[in-house]
């Protein structure tokens, strides 16, 4: 329920104009205000007002609609000012992972927070699938090689991998290992200190390689999944003497055509 409460709070904060500042993390507060440079000085009244609204949101940024409400400026003025601020490189448009369709702006001096960017797994508002996939492969290979491994061992080995020039945290690797469990490639077990677990202290959580197939390999097809009826989209309309029946079934026809 903690998670739901957090979600609720986040939603409430997002819906309140200016409320996003409640979500600002300590990291954003640490950032110092950059030196006021010349482009900022050459702003007209409207641009200045808009710029202050945007900059006040720090690494959370602001949606154009909220911006308009807060600045109390007409649409055409806001649009014109936004363009001018972008040209002067004082603000930038960022992708808000929570709502990609909304135009979201942030002062250039800030980097989008985790809530906006999606965190380490996102690149420019999209999931960095290439990075995730390569990490999955590396983790899988590492556990496959050793049979069983702890989270620390996997993290260390990935970080010491010469071709992999990004430092990954233990938490990131844990997230990757969780997906490998869902892929049924590895399983979480507790060491019994014997046999293959000899090098791992008794009771410690570790990960064991299970799949004989490739990464995310297809699970062994069960009895129902192996026949057309098991995956038939029309099964609810299929009756012995109906229009759709086992005698007239096109999926059966295809299946039995060899």
């Amino acid at each position: 329920m903690d998670y739901l409460l957090r979600l609720y709070n986040m939603a409430a904060a997002m819906l309140k104009p200016g409320g996003m500042s409640r979500l600002q993390g300590p990291s954003s507060l640490k950032r110092k205000r950059p030196e006021v440079n010349s482009p900022a000085q050459s702003l007209n009244e409207h641009e200045r007002l808009l710029y202050d609204v945007i900059r006040s949101k720090q690494d959370i940024g602001i949606w154009t609609r909220d911006m308009k409400k807060e600045a109390k400026l007409p649409d055409n003025v806001v649009n014109k000012s936004l363009k001018a601020l972008q040209v002067k490189k004082l603000i930038k448009e960022v992708v808000n992972i929570q709502n990609k369709g909304r135009k979201h702006f942030m002062a250039t001096e800030f980097e989008p927070s985790k809530e906006i960017s999606g965190g380490a797994w996102y690149l420019e508002g999209s999931l960095d699938t290439e990075f995730i996939e390569s990490l999955k492969q590396l983790c899988k290979r590492q556990i496959e090689r050793s049979g069983v491994a702890t989270l620390e061992a996997v993290t260390d080995s990935i970080n010491s991998y010469p071709a992999f020039n990004v430092d990954v945290t233990k938490q990131q690797i844990e997230e990757i290992l969780r997906t490998l469990i869902l892929d049924n490639v590895i399983m979480e077990v507790k060491s019994n200190g014997m046999g293959e677990f000899a090098s791992i202290p008794f009771g410690e959580v570790c990960y064991k390689y299970v799949s004989k197939g490739g990464l995310g390999g297809e699970p062994k097809a069960g009895a129902l999944a192996s026949i057309p009826c098991g995956v038939c989209p029309r099964i609810s309309q299929c009756t012995p003497d109906g229009i759709i029946s086992p005698k007239t079934c096109v999926y059966y026809q295809k299946w039995l055509d060899f």
Binding site: L182, D183, K220, A221, A223, L224, A225, G230, V231
Partner: peptide, 25 residues
């Protein structure tokens, strides 16, 4: 569970299979 998961995989695909396993666990 193996039987049900294999149906989910075949019927809805690999991502659905992961979601189903996540929820069932």
């Amino acid at each position: 569970t193996d039987e049900v998961e294999s149906i989910v995989y075949k019927k809805y695909g690999k991502d659905a299979y992961r979601m189903f396993r996540l929820l069932s666990k």
